[in-house]
Design a protein around this nucleic acid. Structure first.
Lengths: 231, 231, 231, 231
DNA sequence: TATGAATGAGTGTTCATTCAT
DNA sequence: TATGAATGAACACTCATTCAT
């Protein structure tokens, strides 16, 4: 397995890439970007081969290097897309009040998050698992994911006794939980229906993290089948 | 990875591995196993090079193949170790009652779990992320991790309205949460002190998952610094 | 020979070989095929190194694997060429009557056979000596060589008392004899001139195998130098 | 495949081999020699691994080098055994008169030859196919086989018009024929019964090569099933 | 803009041989 | 005399990248 010869500090090599792309070029570039997603998803970043991407995209081997300096550059482009969407995602989470409308808002956001994860899972995992050698790229990941964490943090109801530290940790726990569920949902079949899972997760997370103060449950009238009763 | 790329009916390869090992051989095998952990941790399974392992172990390249048929076989051995410890880990979690002693028990178990994760993180991640091509190996992972999830499940207080399905999902959430925190704790510096993190996580998880029924908090007298107040 | 030593269910290797070749590619492929002949002839199949083949062909190491999946695949390609020519060879042997024209026909065929052997000796020997592990390949050998044997068999004059079994055995003897002489002729210097050897062999074989019925020799008028008198 | 690092012109390296062997050592040496035969037969000289020999012999890896300087040395020892038996074999062929007793004598000798070939086939083939790099070893082969050819030659009835050259060629043909049949008989199943094959071959060869002068066959009374009628 | 061809450093694996016990 | 352990050069094969057309 030839080692990744192109590191973060690349010697500037003759870059044949066009700066401005005509429609056809843009289309090819998109095809490659599209093709990269399933390939990376299936094999992971390290094991993904340019050859696979190229075959899926239906272009020749050489064409790849017309649009990307190297494998990492492709990943960088994908990461930039991901970062953009992550910013949008962070912005999409408004206040999550304690009531039923808060839970609904949370559920909607989770739906968006899962869709986001379904597309960018590889990149996200490469970020969350330190697989990225490139400094700038890693920073981009931290920033992007941090933004989402920030959004969650500011949405979290800070209990009266919660220190910033505690809120931070709760936000981290929440991100971890949501990310991991997204991973499980998208990668392997958990045996749970998507709808049900999201509904339950929303309930669960809303109660556990966003409810202003837990009420003593007395007369539950919800269908017990479809939801997780928060303990 | 030069894969027995070869053909239909090749001459059988001989497997020179020792069956019974003397102390010296056993020591070398252990050295290799030990050496593999940091290498795999640093590079991941696919990118880990046998060369690195043997360099860390301080043995020659050929020696490796005296003890393992190939890279995957080394991984298999590591996985078996991991599976054994996972079984022990699952057995180590007794009942987690609702009170303070329950939280203490949970914290102790988390300490053990984190130590376990620190050693076997690579294997666990390879399992949880489907990086393992080998069927049996994957099954071993599912089994092992499932055992831990089972232990958690049976320790979970099943609320009056909780269906088995819900308990299952809660167990999954719990495993995901704990595993992810272990990952974060062991791989990158979260900026949290281990002790504090574990203490907080124990509190957090205990309240969220194991408390029989949440009481309306009124006058919290705990040091707010050291704990996360469960919402 | 790094054999797909690997394990149960490996990631499928991709086979980057070109399907349709342009003239340049076709030329390179031919170069490799050509180069393989002397290399295999000199070292035999097992000891032949890909490195030698590419050095002789004057291409890089990687190029080899652009056209052949592995060493065995190269051999397979060579074998297919050989099989094709063997079929032609079998077809080239018409009836071999008892007279002088029969002997001449036989001699011509021997010339062709020897040329055939000179090119495909390695493959043929690998076949006749069971060096081929691949089932299909071995079958191809049996078929090809069998075809030649069949041609000889049907050309053999079946004496009045010859059972099919006997004819079959005689054909086998004939093939063995001719093959072995071809081997001796092409591989080491027997000290005989090619022309003379072939002429003698033709005479010898014709008399021994194809003459309708041996006549009592009385007054031989042939030049004793150039021929073997059949006993 | 590590190349054969020990050539014909070996640098004299510390030879730990005992000069005089005690009974136990002699026994081990014999075990190795015995074990080498099937291993070489199955894999051929180049592909035979010391490891296989050692496993079959049931001794340790290091023990091998107590008795043989290297793989080639083992082969040399085997070759010397073969050469000795070849000499005996050559001596065993007395005159082969034209009559029935001549044919019987020939058959007996063929039986011995086939047994000889069954044991030493690998060595013989390595000789006849120039697989031996060592000069002296190759010469030993030529000598040994030549001795057998000489025996056949001197046994051949030299027809009135046969020049020495012709006799030589006939002897070569005879050796080639017999050797190849021995190979076919011992290595793969021809579908012929051994007994029948030898009987037929004896008849065939005797008529073709040793009969003083062929008589015009008129009233054959032989069972046509069991024999090949010489053409 | 696109392509098929070529490259070669890198990596996994084998196996003859040596060595310490 | 015997052994298990260790070695490392040699070899098969991969794949990111460059290039000529």
């Amino acid at each position: 397995m030839p080692v990744n010869r192109s590191s973060s500090t690349n010697t500037p090599r003759p870059d044949r890439r066009r700066v401005r792309l005509r429609p056809q070029g843009e289309a090819t570039r998109s095809k490659l970007l599209e093709a990269a997603v399933p390939v990376l998803a299936r094999r992971g970043y390290h094991a993904a081969r340019v050859d696979d991407v190229v075959r899926v995209a239906g272009v020749s081997h050489g064409t790849f290097y017309l649009y990307f300096a190297n494998k990492e550059d492709l990943f960088r482009a994908l990461a930039r897309q991901c970062a953009d969407e992550a910013a949008a995602l962070a912005g999409a989470l408004g206040p999550v009040p304690a009531g039923a409308e808060g839970q609904a808002a949370l559920r909607e956001w989770l739906v968006v998050f899962f869709a986001f994860y379904r597309r960018h899972g590889v990149v996200i995992r490469a970020w969350t698992e330190n697989q990225v050698a490139d400094r700038d790229l890693a920073r981009l990941g931290v920033t992007s994911f941090g933004r989402v964490a920030d959004a969650l943090r500011s949405a979290l109801t800070e209990g009266p006794h919660a220190t910033p530290r505690q809120v931070e940790l709760r936000a981290a726990a929440l991100v971890a939980l949501v990310e991991r569920f997204a991973y499980l949902l998208t990668s392997r079949d958990l045996g749970f229906d998507d709808e049900v899972l999201i509904e339950n997760l929303a309930t669960f997370v809303h109660r556990g993290f966003f409810a202003a103060a837990p009420q003593r449950r007395r007369h539950s009238t919800r269908r017990p089948e479809a939801n997780i009763s928060c303990p």
